[in-house]
Design a protein around this nucleic acid. Structure first.
Lengths: 111, 111
DNA sequence: TTTCGTTGTTCTTGTGTTAGTATAACGCCA
DNA sequence: TGGCGTTATACTAACACAAGAACAACGAAA
């Protein structure tokens, strides 16, 4: 029996940012392309696109800069705000998970 | 911008118990009836039933005792194991939420 | 000017989940 | 015995969500 946890940010009840968008952003950063990131994650392009732009609308600022055209077709790149957000969320959720897992051990050690 | 968190227990990846089943069990305990609890939560009886029995199957022990027939039609009542589980989960998740919210303030105070 | 792989956008299709319905069994009481 | 409000279970309809297709725009290079 194992604990799993999830953390996400909301603005008046609406989901704004969480694990899924965070992973997607990291993959976009690594691959330089929303298309490639979506394919690697077995996610449709349109789904990936709507995740990113839904988060942008909710947050009120851009997470990716895009470029279309050119030899390589273009690509997507994280804004500095997105990089900061990803870093903060990752560090936070890592530590939160550890904390919560310790607490779980305390409360459920004799279950 | 507010943090929301969710915690649930799993057995080899499968969800076993979490917030939803916990609330449902509390309502069953309070109302003495799965039917009444489901109606109060705007949930179909069949959905409520499958939540409870799915959790029982995954956990390997009974969470509710049921009685059908009689003047009042019967009802559902929590087993001692269910009461213990609900209490542990509630205390755990309350403290976990507080901890995680404090941590969130630290990491996101200047966002 | 053509080719290419992106982004951006809309629409249709399929799938999985949930609600809702139907039906039987139960047991106390009038 | 008949009525009632439960539990228990199966089946069907409706809805939400995701996949995927389709198509235009873009811009660098051949």
């Amino acid at each position: 029996m194992k604990l799993e946890s999830r953390f996400w940010m909301t603005v008046d009840g609406k989901k704004v940012f969480g694990k899924g968008p965070c992973i997607l952003l990291k993959n976009i950063d690594r691959l330089g392309s929303l298309n490639k990131a979506a394919r690697e994650m077995n996610m449709s392009y349109s789904k990936a696109w709507s995740i990113i732009h839904g988060a942008e609308r909710a947050l009120g600022y851009a997470l990716v800069e895009t470029k279309s055209g050119g030899l390589d077709g273009g690509g997507s790149f994280l804004t500095v705000e997105a990089k900061r957000l990803v870093r903060a969320y990752e560090e936070f959720s890592k530590e939160a998970e550890e904390l919560v897992n310790k607490l779980y051990e305390d409360y459920f050690k004799d279950f």
